[in-house]
Design a protein around this nucleic acid. Sequence first.
RNA 1: GCGUCCGUAGCUCAACUGGAUAGAGCACCUGACUUCGGAUCAGGGGGUUGGGGGUUCGAGUCCCUCCGGACGUGCCA
Length: 545
Amino acid sequence: MIAGIKDIESEISDVLNEFGIKDNVEIRYSNIENTDIQCNNLVRYSNNPDINDIKDKLGKSLLVHPFIESVEIAQNGFINLNFSNEYLKIFAKNHNSRIISSKKEAILFDYGGPNIGKDLHVGHIRTLNIGRSLYNIFKIAGHDVVSDIHLGDWGMPIGLILAYIEKESIDINSLTYLDLEIIYPKASELSAGNKDFYKEAQEISKKLNSKNEEFLSKWKIIYNLAIPNIKNLLQNLNYEFDLWRGESDVVEEVKRVVADAKEKNLVVEDDGALISTEKVDPPILITKSDGSYLYLTTDLGTVVHREKSQIYDKYIYVVDSRQKNHFEQVFKTVKHFNLSSSSFVHVGFGTVNGPDKKPFKTRDGNVYKLSKLHEDIKEKLKKYNENEEVLNILTNTVLTFSDLLPNRNQNYEFDLEKFTDINGKTGVYIQYAQVRARKLLESNTEIINADVDNEYNPDERKLLVLLSKFDYFYNQSLDNYQPHHLAEYLYSLCQTFNSFYANNKIFSDDVPDNLKLKRIEIVDNFYTLTGLIFNCLGIELVDSM
RNA sequence: GCGUCCGUAGCUCAACUGGAUAGAGCACCUGACUUCGGAUCAGGGGGUUGGGGGUUCGAGUCCCUCCGGACGUGCCA
């Protein structure tokens, strides 16, 4: 909230105190028309015998505050306040200083999580978009943020791939990336109905854990084949990571976590497997009955590995909600095994569905690759713009904005036609508004010198009021790990701007200089804040379109 | 069975975590200075927030109960 609002809160609090009322007074932005901010505390005292005196006193004392131009206390007790234009003008800008966190933390973001051998697909866009957005939002708040893609480059999937290569006598040296993406599904399918093959894969996986040189070198070949491809695609889609660590980096830590837990009697044997001594239902499985490790074990090792180089205050895992139980187990076990004293957060999200309400697949029922989705969006947008660079940013905008708009808690329906439409609540619309503002600022070539007053017409004032509310939406996104608040806000900003724009000419001969300047300042505020929000969401700006 | 998330306009989604008359987009209908920046703008219809009960000055939001859906539930990741 705007600094200074606190003063108003305590003024109200003081008045209430005089009448013997102790209450935690809170001022909030209003969504009532023609009201900027409001206070609801008085409502529950509408039966107080002194209510009229309280209202009187409040009405007078609030009006002398320099921020406040008008005070209206409704019959039912809502206190409605409006900013003076002089201050509104200030509140509509300088947002950065308002959102810097007073307590700076080191935060690690774990998201992305692509697997070697499996292409990135539609199911990955939410972790990528939400992860990147939260990373940016926390960074802007002043935190020390680090992103780690957390590659799935170890364990059974790799065992399966290598077992398949063995079985089919494939020459690993002439393998291409395209072969790799065919091999994994086949191997996975084979393992489902073929126990011997599954066992073989398991053996290879175990050999890798004990650093068997032959398989380690084969693993390396596959790793080197897959990683450049993943990097290339993600770079195209404008996703960057500070760390490219994976499960293969934490093998030693996993072993040590298990050995330590054994030594400290934090695990017991059960059906040949090790489970945590923590009494929870279902029990937490630490190793399989053959002694090999699990997803959970690897995640424990990862925590230890991370803390070897830096201890973070907070770890944020952006992984789909189906894994909620898994992360609860991980976080509990981290504390139980005393592996870290930091805080751990799982940011879950629902699935991306197709028109059939089921996880989005291609028309023929196959996995919808992320690269294909990118191409398909691009194809739809081609008819509006042919510049390759603009087209690429617009494509990424659609891929990001559409995905961040719905609340992450729920599943949502990915509608290619709708999301690439030039009309509606789309990535294209927000880019267009931004470009318009930019063009206006660029047209402002001659420096106008004029005295600008603080009078605003309804369009101008509406935009300024909305601009002033940024910190509310920003904090909603930050506190709840939900970028959609900012995405929704961005859309309404653009809509309000477009309305302002249509009805308020600037570079027209009949517009006097002081009005030109006043409006240009508003446009400048809009453009600056929009840029900041684009940044929060991980969307690049196009120069023109 | 147990657990988690969810059910809001014809469709897709919001709603300041308990605040005032539940908002947007799409679709549908009606308009806009000869387009300039129009990939835009203004307006209209459309709702018993799955049903019922409760708490409260005040409920889409909290509690109970039923109905309906998605997901998870010890050796995949």
